[in-house]
């Protein structure tokens, strides 16, 4: 795929945010907060950083693969998949409705192009991504596997089983990312279950760790992914701590866990859309 410029990427983010809000509003359900916060990261991956084809094949040989472990932020993924050409943007209107391929959490059951494993029950995505990365090694495929997790998700024990394994088996074709937005359903991560120093934890597990201080700044998001790529192939898995603001792009949604799993009403949607340019045309 053709790589978009920073300006084009930012315009795409604005449209993706409109898609997210309109999707969750239409069914009065879904998770806008984390989706809005991770928009720059998804757009950077699919429109600039990943080598991939929209001609979807489950095995994904000789292309970069992306896994979403915190499946509840499906709106941003569906929008980015549609906007990059995996399926038609009009299908975004079916999100969470009966007989849709766009299930509440991502699945393979309905054969939606771009999805390689179901996620939603937290803590499982990194294991699958590591498995896919090892399959690539056996196949002599030198492409990269990406996986995104939530920060609250680090409270799941399986994540640390996987972290230990990836370092032991030198899975150095993997870039994992944690969306560090410091929020989870019941409040701040520091209050619910403090994660303490994730950098030190992953370093102690034997990973290379890079940090994206402003995960909502496209230039920084891209430069850190490029730095992470430069660390591949050296015997260690790579972790990108992506600091984001939940709800970024809509003033009344920023920095609060209130919009984790709540959709805007008609008035709030109108207000939010007024803050976001319709750069590529609404679905």
């Amino acid at each position: 795929m053709e790589k978009l410029s920073i300006d084009q990427l930012n315009k795409t983010c604005s449209q993706v945010r409109r898609d997210i809000l309109r999707m969750v509003h239409a069914v009065n359900s879904g998770h806008p907060g984390g989706s809005l916060g991770c928009t720059e990261f998804f757009v950077a991956l699919y429109f600039n950083q990943m080598e991939h084809t929209t001609d979807f094949d489950m095995d994904g040989r000789n292309e970069d693969l992306f896994f979403l472990s915190n499946g509840h932020i499906s709106p941003v993924w569906y929008s980015v998949l549609a906007r990059s050409g995996y399926f038609g943007v009009e299908e975004l209107a079916t999100f969470r409705k009966i007989d849709s391929r766009l299930q509440g959490h991502p699945t393979t059951e309905e054969n939606l192009p771009g999805i390689r494993i179901a996620s939603g029950s937290l803590g499982q995505g990194m294991s699958a991504a590591i498995g896919a990365a090892q399959a690539k090694k056996i196949n002599g495929d030198d492409k990269t596997v990406f996986v995104l997790m939530g920060d609250g998700e680090q409270q799941e024990g399986q994540v640390w089983e996987a972290a230990m394994y990836a370092a032991h088996h030198k899975v150095d074709n993997l870039i994992a990312t944690i969306d560090v937005n410091r929020q989870q359903i019941d409040g701040l991560t520091t209050e619910v279950m403090d994660l303490q120093d994730l950098r030190k934890k992953y370093e102690a597990f034997g990973w290379e760790v890079v940090e994206t201080k402003d995960g909502n700044n496209m230039e920084e998001v891209i430069s850190v992914i490029e730095k992470a790529k430069s660390l591949l192939g050296k015997g260690k898995p790579v972790m990108n701590l992506l600091h984001t603001e939940m709800g970024y792009g809509v003033d009344f949604m920023v920095g609060t866990h209130k919009w984790h799993g709540v959709a805007p009403n008609d008035e709030q949607l109108e207000n939010a859309l007024g803050q976001l340019e319709e750069s590529l045309g609404d679905y």
Binding site: S127, A129, G131, A132, A162
Partner: peptide, 16 residues
């Protein structure tokens, strides 16, 4: 680490 093993196995099918 059996939970990780099940996820790894699922991931390895991607790639045949």
């Amino acid at each position: 680490a059996e939970a990780n093993m099940m996820g790894l196995a699922a991931g390895m099918t991607i790639g045949g």
